[in-house]
């Protein structure tokens, strides 16, 4: 006998309550781990790899004066004493055994990602049910790319619907079309990223071409003409914050019926997390120029007066 859908396992790196900016009402976001894209500006670098991974925030370390648990437990010798009496991690030696994180009292060493079942995620999500009832909120799947774990994501959404939860999903669109079409019927809202129209630039900045993404968008629209879909563009300084880049995107989506469009201002909040993972943050541009989003919105409104633009 097949195991029940609620027993299907997947890997998430966070379940966050009280989200008020991603979908209607007060929501809970389940962040699924693993992403086929490597966007240079990604604000959740811990979302990219599929498996749980070690993170190290040196600011939280109590220093070796107070504690050497990690040093003692690390058999591959990946943890060394740094000049400020804190660990320095030799990432190339780290085997991701994660024992140091378990030993660390202050959570300077932690693990991004853990395995859970569909049932466990939804039990956690339902704990805020009283708030969804009044606000129209519910579950948002995010990531990473939720459809990077297609069976898990689809089972989550199907079971959420069965439990009468409002469902939303954020996707980068780079997934198998069948998977998207399997997930979409269980959704109340789809949030779909279109980042750059130029295929070569898209590949340069995200690691993949955008053909599959654009094609999937058309397919899901055709398959489910009534599903509310909001196309979103993270506006990144120096990459797609010019009128031409945004015009290209809106020209494309204006040709597809019944899409909302939203531009999101880039933020650098994810930057420290690159350090925690022993990685470099490749983007050095400062924040968006003041007023640039307003300018871009104005341009879009003039160019596509009938496009449903999120203010």
């Amino acid at each position: 006998m097949a195991p029940p859908a609620t027993a299907i396992k997947g890997t998430v790196f966070s379940i966050q309550k009280f989200s008020v900016h991603d979908g209607p009402g007060i929501r809970t976001i389940a962040f699924l781990k693993g992403c086929p894209l490597r966007c240079r500006w990604c604000s959740n670098p811990e979302s990219q790899r599929s498996v749980p991974e070690l993170a190290y925030n040196r600011d939280r370390c109590l220093t070796f004066d107070n504690c050497i648990r990690c040093l003692e437990i690390c058999t591959p010798g990946a943890i060394h004493r740094d000049h400020d009496d804190r660990p320095r991690i030799h990432w190339d030696l780290c085997t991701q055994c994660l024992l140091c994180a378990d030993a660390c009292p202050s959570k300077a060493l932690t693990v991004y990602g853990y395995e859970v079942t569909v049932g466990q995620v939804l039990d956690e999500v339902e704990r805020d049910g009283a708030f969804y009832a009044r606000s129209g909120g519910g579950l948002t799947l995010s990531g990473g790319e939720p459809l990077h774990q297609p069976a898990f994501a689809v089972a989550l959404l199907a079971e959420a619907r069965r439990r009468r939860l409002n469902t939303a999903m954020e996707t980068c669109g780079h997934c198998r079309g069948e998977d998207l079409l399997a997930a979409a019927p269980h959704l109340h809202t789809l949030l779909y990223d279109v980042k750059i129209m130029d295929a070569a630039l898209h590949r340069q900045y995200t690691g993949v071409s955008n053909e599959l993404i654009l094609d999937n968008l058309k397919r899901v629209r055709a398959a489910l003409p009534q599903l509310p879909i909001t196309v979103r563009t993270p506006v990144i300084p120096g990459i797609n914050d010019d009128a031409a880049a945004i015009a290209a995107i809106t020209d494309f989506i204006a040709g597809i019926p019944n899409l909302r469009y939203e531009m999101l201002a880039y933020h650098r909040m994810g930057k420290p997390k690159y350090g925690y993972l022993g990685r470099d943050f490749e983007i050095s541009e400062p924040s968006l120029a003041e007023g640039s989003l307003t300018q871009l919105k104005k341009m879009v409104r003039q160019r596509h007066p009938h496009l449903d633009l999120v203010e």
Partner: peptide, 22 residues
């Protein structure tokens, strides 16, 4: 920022309603 704008007010209202329900 959490309660900014009309959308923020709407969410605060629903938060208060839930407080009442609880």
């Amino acid at each position: 920022k959490t309660v900014a704008g009309e959308e923020g007010t709407a969410k605060l209202v629903s938060f208060l309603r839930t407080f009442c329900d609880l």
